[in-house]
Design a protein around this nucleic acid. Structure first.
Lengths: 157, 157
DNA sequence: TTGGGCTTGCAACTCAGTTGCATAGGCATT
DNA sequence: AATGCCTATGCAACTGAGTTGCAAGCCCAA
């Protein structure tokens, strides 16, 4: 990460330009903090709690917690980021759906509360074609697997 | 509800005896408060937030909020009650799985945050046979539909 | 009757997130 | 340059849901 935008082409796309573009593409003016928050979420393979995002952003610049929550609200609102439930009191934040990030279920370890992304293939077939049974409107489905993660299995008795 | 245990047989089972029996059956000594809490959860068709359970119990007897949370912890621990996520910061509590209450997905209205139970038939086929892919152990799957409920659809523009 | 183990209550606390203001920068208009 | 406005950020104080620590009160057994 932190690849130069005008450097030679490398395997990974220039994330820096990318995140700024993503913001603009969703009608959000980019600011250094917004970009840093989105980058912190996007550079991780698993959804993070606000406190983890704050630590990640603070490793590079200074940010107030209120600002962080406001930026997260904004990004969730614009669909760039998804607010996820892990089963404890803290929300997790992961990248919103795009071509590169298709909808997928999550796994939460009930011991260490870490949340992981599962492959979209683990979304049970047919779950996308849920009916609007009754007179309610169904907009999303959220599939959450719970159990013990690999690390805890290795570590614990 | 509140049918007499020694009265004539009516369509519904004697809930009073039932809840006490359920407690004992799960190795929990019954007390008036525990029974009242379990009844409040069991008599509802939808999962309730702690505050709603408190109101329901208090309509019949007095209870302290700490006691309520401790009883809920106990019931969840013993499997009599299930702690559910609605998308806001408050847990919901619904009856645990039994022969009469099979596993089922839930619906949450993103406008009024009310949670409803959906039929077990709405659990996408095959979701029960999820693999223990990788080296993690998967214990539960939680399927949550989100959208706008019937009441809000009628009420709102 | 002494002691231990439960259940319940009260007060104070925690944690994650929110609200209400103040400040500071940017841009447009005068 | 001065004025006004609009947005982004920060600080302090607050909120809501749940938790912790400790003190009764009660029951049963030794």
């Amino acid at each position: 990460m932190q690849l130069s935008c005008i450097g030679i082409m490398v395997a990974r796309m220039c994330e820096r330009c990318n995140y700024a573009e993503m913001l603009e593409g969703h009608g959000v003016d980019t600011t250094p903090l917004r970009e840093a928050v989105l980058r912190s979420v996007g550079d991780e393979s698993r959804p993070l709690a606000a406190a983890e995002i704050m630590a990640a952003v603070r490793s590079r610049m200074s940010i107030n917690k209120v600002t962080l929550y406001r930026i997260l609200d904004l990004l969730v609102d614009k669909g760039l980021v998804k607010r996820l439930l892990a089963g404890d009191r803290a929300f997790r934040y992961g990248m919103g759906e795009t071509r590169h990030h298709p909808d997928h279920p999550h796994f939460v370890c009930s011991r260490c509360r870490v949340m992981e992304c599962l492959g979209p293939d683990l979304l049970p077939v047919g779950i996308k074609k849920f009916q609007t049974k009754g007179k309610r409107i169904i907009k999303h489905v959220d599939v959450r697997f719970e159990g013990i993660c690999e690390r805890c299995l290795k570590a614990g008795t």
